[in-house]
């Protein structure tokens, strides 16, 4: 079953070759070079959840920074040296609290805050997550092993070509004395999408 669309069947060989043909024609026609494509791929490889975690951990320790990040994410990211491309869609950081929990989805496709945390995980692009999260968010949270108190309001945010969302998870208890670097390790890709909470300090202290 190609749940995440990763059927390594007959299609892959055909499309891999078709993609190569398209690229070869673009080069022949002078639209771009193979080097343009490869250097772009390297650039895209360079963003990962670690970048987002670094920013969000800073927001945990610096309340004034957090305010700026929630008010204007692009400017706040620039403060930490993350210069989002001008063509990147608007980015908004959503804060999870003891009252409200945000989850991001792209029901239509796979829009994701790539400019700061890299490419989306496979399940995010898969049909099951996209279909179910807007109907039964708590059921989806359970599939990720996440249980929230009944009193917490769950908000599911649909991303688009123009608007992307990064979730600021709740800072776990017992992290008061931790450094920003240690805190960043608690902020996972799943917690920045909102399908999980940040890790507890106990869960990483053994490693």
């Amino acid at each position: 079953m190609a749940e995440n669309g990763h059927n390594h069947g007959d299609n892959a060989e055909y499309y891999a070759l078709r993609a190569e043909a398209i690229q070869a024609l673009l080069v022949e026609k002078g639209v771009c070079s193979i080097n343009d494509i490869l250097s772009m791929a390297d650039k895209l490889d360079s963003r990962s959840p670690k970048d987002g975690a670094k920013v969000l951990a800073h927001a945990w320790v610096d309340p004034a920074y957090k305010e700026r990040l929630l008010a204007d994410a692009e400017s706040a990211l620039l403060e930490l040296g993350y210069d989002l491309p001008e063509t990147a869609p608007r980015l908004t950081v959503l804060e999870n609290t003891s009252e409200v929990h945000h989850m991001a989805v792209c029901t239509l496709c796979s829009c994701y805050p790539r400019a700061i945390i890299g490419r989306p995980p496979a399940w995010y692009k898969g049909l099951a997550y996209r279909s179910k999260v807007v109907v039964d968010p708590r059921g989806v949270l359970k599939e990720f092993g996440t249980e929230l108190d009944e009193s917490v309001q769950v908000r599911v945010i649909d991303s688009s070509a123009d608007y992307r969302y990064l979730v600021l998870p709740t800072r776990p208890a017992g992290t008061e004395g931790m450094s920003e670097e240690e805190l960043a390790k608690l902020i996972t890709q799943e917690s920045m999408i909102g399908v999980a909470l940040a890790l507890s300090p106990e869960s990483v202290s053994t490693s």
Binding site: E3, Y15, A16, L38, M40, L44, G126, V140, E143
Partner: peptide
């Protein structure tokens, strides 16, 4: 369908399509 949590290692042609 349950959500499939397995990650897909990008193949080189996919990485190039992504960049293209």
């Amino acid at each position: 369908d349950p959500i499939d949590h397995s990650e897909h290692e990008m193949e080189e042609w996919e990485r190039k399509v992504d960049a293209l």
